[in-house]
Design a protein around this nucleic acid. Structure first.
Length: 595
RNA sequence: GGGGACGUAGUUCAGUUCUGGUUAGAACGCCGGCCUGUCACGCCGGAGGUCGCGGGUUCGAGUCCCGUCGUCCCCGCCA
């Protein structure tokens, strides 16, 4: 029943047969998108990556051919030769790009069959993700998904062109490399040749690109795969792609200018959107106003601090928090006074996710303030709070008192939730923002030591170098993040190019000379041989692509993504291997005892 | 490691709690038949179920209880 392709040569993609081809003989090939058998005449929508075209099998051409067409089923693979005709008046289909014409089939080759589909190949996804991932090859036939993948391809090409125009050199760096401390958990690859030793897959090309600067390439870029063995999220996969670049003899602004050019060109060429001036905000301001280092600036509802008022008030919960070094911040949800008790309870539960032990509130109504806590404040204190939050009748004020991290995490997320509830977030907006002047270090409670906020190769601000050892908390980094609609899409820094400063930073984060040498010796060595001042950045390509395509999850812009538990449902990875393979790798597997 | 939602036909779902009870339904898809202008074609007929899995309670479990597995969202984690 199946036929060979033989001498068939395609003349057109399905979606590209147009009115200009009327009267011409064309040959198309693809998948049967749907069939409509009218007994006499049979219509087949034929689909390939370019779109669909209607093929007509008419008894006027050949009864035999019509009989053959009746055997077609969805997703059969066929090749068709026929004449392009204008559709009879009244039968045009405005929904199809090719809806003005149709192909009168004269030859039909059935190249392959298809089993009935586990789910329909339709734009509207009404299928569970598990099924989609298992049959990813079918999922990728869906228009939306195919367009995502093709969009991603164009994103690569525009990116490469911009970097090429700017004099960057594309260089590949190793995937099999050395495990380094700090940062995420590594994926390890056992060495066959060196028993007991392991390669690590790179978390990013960071060290190599710095070394390339020492080598004098001056401007490097790469669209690189990165690997981190951490738990997954909608925007996090164990392997993901970075647009990675690095430059010598530059300041922050030089790197940021290149980054802006990439983003501007991508938005303009792929979406026809002109990106305006990109504002710059300090880390401190972002935390103060939004409670996060990646604020969504498409809407207001900014946070206000009232720690000073809370300190003097008679509300014990607030005062105790402040006395123990905590803070109190608040948010004014404009027009929220109509929230029900249950809605407020739900919001209280919501901030609980981020560690908040409660959510105090004050409703501002025409009949005065309505709140369980208002009695603990003097009139003066209350007036100050109302003034600071610009409260008006109809508003509701929410307060969280806790450690700064908890307050900021709770209220920044509450802000997003309220913004969504009230429809304040305009999804058509493209709000880009630079966040700069990050702290160099943050205190790790568990390990009781300082940690690099960015990474340990980030240069401290020149004026802060003196304070490195005595006051790490106050040292600011020459780092910058690019934020798009509340999502961190990229970040980078000016690096340390001097060995003496690098050693100090290692000292602050408690990395001994021996360990630093053992783990990063190759970089430290390179820094001794004329390392130029340099800096760079990396964009998260998957996130950027997802946002530009309006997708909620980066899985939808990755051809073969993994599930939240890190499985590939298509291939079944990860899986066991043959004992001989383990033997060769000098590995014995020790499974934990079942309880 | 933790919290939450979901899991019933190929697919999407109803039924599931309050209130356990005869043969588990619908739509789409699939199979067969009819149909010469459809494009969500139409009409007639048909097949299709380990109710995720395991255990328990009960005369009786899709429904109640315990455990477990899977998918998704989130916290932790992710420089």
């Amino acid at each position: 029943m199946l036929e060979h392709l033989g001498s068939f040569k395609r003349t057109h993609y399905c979606g590209e047969v147009t009115g200009k081809d009327i009267g011409d003989r064309v040959r198309v090939a693809g998948w049967v998108d749907s069939t409509r058998d009218h007994g006499g005449v049979v219509f087949v929508d034929l689909r390939d990556r370019s779109g669909k075209v209607q093929v007509v099998f008419s008894p006027e051409i050949s009864e035999e051919l019509v009989e053959k067409a009746k055997r077609l089923r969805d997703e059969y693979v066929i090749a068709v030769e026929g004449e392009v005709r204008r559709r009879p008046p009244g039968t045009e289909n405005p929904k199809l790009k090719t809806g003005q014409i149709e192909i009168y089939a004269e030859k039909l080759q059935i190249l392959n069959k298809s089993l009935p589909l586990p789910f329909p190949i339709e734009d509207d996804v009404k299928v569970g993700e598990e099924t989609r991932l298992k049959f990813r090859f079918l999922d990728l036939r869906r228009k939306r998904m195919a367009e995502n993948i093709i969009f991603r391809h164009r994103l690569y090409q525009v990116t490469r062109r911009v970097f090429n125009e700017e004099g960057f050199i594309e260089i590949e760096t190793p995937y099999l490399t050395k495990s380094t401390p700090e940062g995420a958990r590594d994926f390890l690859v056992p060495s066959r040749i060196y028993p007991g030793k392991f390669y690590a897959l790179p978390q990013s090309p960071q060290l190599f690109k710095q070394i390339l600067m020492v080598s004098g390439f001056d401007r490097y870029y790469q669209i690189a795969r990165c690997f981190r063995d951490e738990d997954l999220r909608a925007d996090r996969q164990p392997e993901f792609t970075q647009i990675d670049f690095e430059m010598s003899f530059v300041s922050e602004r030089d790197v940021m200018d290149v980054a802006e050019k990439v983003i501007r060109t991508l938005y303009k060429e792929l979406l026809g959107i002109e990106v305006g001036e990109i504002p710059v905000m300090t880390y401190d301001e972002a935390i103060k106003r939004f409670g996060t280092d990646r604020p969504d600036t498409r809407f207001g509802l900014e946070l206000r601090e009232i720690t000073d008022v809370a300190e003097t008030c008679s509300f014990k919960v607030f005062r105790t928090v402040v006395e123990n070094g905590g803070i109190v911040k608040a948010i004014n949800f404009k027009g929220g006074a109509k929230l029900s008790r249950k809605e407020i309870d739900d919001l209280t539960k919501f901030v609980g996710i981020y560690g908040a032990k409660g959510l105090a509130w004050i409703k501002v109504t025409a009949n005065g303030l309505q709140s369980p806590i208002v009695k603990f404040f003097t009139e003066g204190e209350m007036n100050e709070i109302l003034k600071r939050l610009e409260a008006e009748v109809g508003d509701i004020l929410f307060f969280v008192a806790d450690k700064p991290d908890v307050v900021n995490a709770s209220l920044s997320n509450l802000r997003i939730k309220l913004g969504r509830m009230a429809g304040l977030i305009d999804d058509s907006k493209v709000n880009l923002l630079w966040v700069v002047d990050f702290p160099m270090f943050e205190w790790n409670e568990e390990e009781n030591r300082w940690e690099a906020l960015h990474h340990p190769f980030t240069s401290p601000k020149e004026e802060d170098v003196e304070k490195l050892l005595e006051d790490p908390a106050s040292v600011r980094a020459r780092a910058y993040d690019m934020v798009l609609n509340g999502v961190e899409i990229g970040g980078g820094s000016i690096r340390i190019h001097r060995e003496d400063i690098q050693e100090k930073v290692f000292k602050v984060i408690g990395l001994s000379d021996e360990e630093a040498k053992e783990r990063f010796g190759f970089l430290l060595e390179a820094l001794k041989f004329g390392a130029p001042p340099h800096g760079g950045m990396a964009f998260g390509l998957d996130r950027l692509c997802a946002i530009m395509r309006g997708e909620e999850s980066i899985r939808d812009v990755i051809a073969f993504p993994k599930t939240q538990k890190g499985q590939c449902l298509l291939t079944g990875a990860p899986d066991t291997v043959r004992p001989e393979q383990l033997e060769e790798l000098h590995i014995s597997v020790k499974l934990e005892e079942e309880e």
